[in-house]
Amino acid sequence: MSGRQIGDVILDLQHISLRFGGVKALTDISFDVREHEVRAIIGPNGAGKSSMLNVINGVYHPQEGRITFRGEERRKMEPHMAAMQGISRTFQNIALFKGMTVLDNVMTGRITKMKATFIEQALFFGRAHREEMEHRKKVEEVIDFLEIQHIRKTPVGRLPYGLQKRVELARALAAEPSMLLLDEPMAGMNVEEKQDMCRFILDVNDQFGTTIVLIEHDMGVVMDISDRVVVLDYGKKIGDGTPDEVRSNEEVIRAYLGTGH
């Protein structure tokens, strides 16, 4: 990694507990994310990894615990407010807008930055027109970056799975987030697609300095690209540290990694 400098804590989660009725999804989980780092969350299925991301960007509201983002403690937050603060995410099951083209999908990523009212847009004059062009330019940079120029006018429903994942990443990046939450960005991909995706994630982290929180099952990938790893099991934190520390943690081996043969 080149000039990337890991900075101070940007997101701090303290004693987070989340329940759905009687089901405890998360129990007393604390960890932090530092600026510019790649932070992985791993664990077996149902460990609460996706719930953790949903807590971070305000889809779920934990019953207990404190979340501090950029030094500000957050009580209750709606997802669109998290987006305004610079938190973007992708989903485990692709959540693209199927009826729209790639370009339109990526353009929606910049929606929080568009200020023209719908009346100006109806007239397509002045600020509305100017904004469309400015944001198109930014969006084209993202499209270039992720190498999806050739499909920009294709409806996303027609694209193969791997490309759809990439478009989803493009949509998240278009918002120029300071923090990017990736929910299994490499699930269901073949080795080449995984390598591409790894390269893009590292490039994003390196070139834009974006902090990345990542859920992934491929241990090879996780150990290669992340700076620190947190391990969840049954909604509890069982390990936290650098990949090497986590790899040698007894409890993590027992719950998730398994012993080598």
Binding site: H80, F91, M100, T108, Q121, F124
Partner: peptide
């Protein structure tokens, strides 16, 4: 424009639309 894209986003996948902002 973005208002139309917001409508279509809500139509196609409202959870993702909300997360985008």
């Amino acid at each position: 424009s973005s208002v139309g894209r917001a409508w279509m986003a809500v139509r196609d996948m409202d959870v993702a639309a909300e997360v985008i902002g």
